[in-house]
């Protein structure tokens, strides 16, 4: 597996797709941070000074969305672009049968390629987060507190899981489909429906199961919201969005959109500890990991039993 890992990693770093996507993401990240820092500097008087550094990642400017929005949008693209052709391009080039006639287990091929992709992505994300932090540090002149650094670390891991899921999906499609063009189109179709159309489906489902109007009871509205959220959370993009928002914003105490007045009574306003924030999004992380594992399981089953013919 080592040999596969190092070769694939070297391939990633030498490839144009890595350089291009890195440039695009850097550009997006830097401009998002720049506008965020401008906004923070602009209204520094009105906002609390706690966790100001974290707000670099979550604040959106007038013209540009926030850094985490960019990441939730580009993350799938990175994963898919890194993964969509790893197996089927080797098959069509005829290198797969050559590699598999060497003494190694088939799963080491998938594992090696996945780990190499994940490592490349990790290096990319880590360097972007560092660059963003550096830029933010200069622009707002506030050093991150240790708690903030820990939260940024957790944010990095969640992002890695999120992009890792799309990488796993890309690899799955590269095993399932013989042609690279089919696998990339299938992956993009899944991405678009999970990122854009899911809110439409969620709305339809919620209206159908628990219709609400202006005169509805609070219970009905809650039910409506609950169904809407559950459908939304099928999408890893939602999971990522909620998880990162909670981790990067210690003031966020619940994931629910609607909170009853009687629930807020007696609540002491103040930031949550990192452990508490994590507890809130723990199911999200588990779900992301489970999604990655499902992609892997299906890839394994298909790839292990497959006949490798050099044609």
């Amino acid at each position: 597996m080592r040999a596969v890992f190092w070769k694939e990693l070297a391939d990633y770093f030498g490839s144009w797709r890595f350089i291009i996507i890195f440039a695009v993401i850097c550009l997006a990240a830097l401009s998002a941070t720049y506008t965020a820092a401008q906004t923070i500097r602009g209204d520094i008087a009105q906002t609390p000074t706690e966790y100001v550094f974290l707000r670099l990642f979550t604040t959106s400017g007038e013209t540009l969305p926030s850094f985490i929005f960019f990441l939730s949008f580009f993350g799938p693209l990175i994963g898919i672009i890194f993964g969509f052709d790893v197996i089927n391009s080797e098959r069509s080039r005829g290198t797969l049968s050559r590699v598999l006639s060497q003494p190694l287990f088939r799963d080491s091929v998938i594992n090696g390629k996945f780990l190499a992709g994940l490592t490349a992505i990790a290096i990319m994300l880590a360097s972007i987060i560092l660059v963003v932090s550096g830029l933010g540090l200069r622009m707002i002149g506030v050093a991150p507190a240790p708690g903030e650094v820990a939260r940024i670390g957790v944010f990095f891991l969640i992002s890695l899981l999120y992009v890792g899921f799309w990488l796993g999906l890309g690899i799955l499609f590269s095993v399932l489909f013989r042609r690279t063009i089919t696998s990339v189109l299938a992956a993009i179709a899944i991405w678009i429906s999970l990122a854009l159309f899911i809110s439409m489906f969620a709305g339809i489902a919620a209206n159908w199961v628990a219709p609400v109007d202006q005169h509805s009871e609070a219970e009905a509205i809650l039910e409506h919201e609950r169904i809407y959220d559950s459908v939304m959370r099928i999408s890893p993009t939602t999971l990522f969005g909620e998880a990162t928002e909670t981790v990067l914003n210690p003031g966020k105490r619940t994931l629910r959109g609607v909170v009853l007045v009687r629930e807020v009574e007696g609540m002491i306003p103040g930031p949550l500890a990192l452990g508490q924030s994590l507890m809130l999004v723990w199911p999200h992380l588990v779900a992301l990991i489970a999604l990655i594992l499902i992609c892997f399981a299906v890839s394994y089953v298909r790839f292990m039993r497959e006949e490798i013919r050099a044609t």
Binding site: R2, A3, V4, W6, K7, D11, G14, E90, R93, G94, T95, L96, S97, R98, V99, S101, Q102, P103, L104, A310, T311
Partner: peptide, 26 residues
């Protein structure tokens, strides 16, 4: 050793690098 009918190599690697990959896998 197996030489498939349509043998394929990593086109962006040199001959030596292609063989090196095989020796590492072995």
């Amino acid at each position: 050793g197996y030489l498939p009918e349509n043998v394929g190599f990593y086109e962006d690697l040199t001959a030596r690098e292609n063989l090196r990959y095989i020796t590492r896998l072995n």
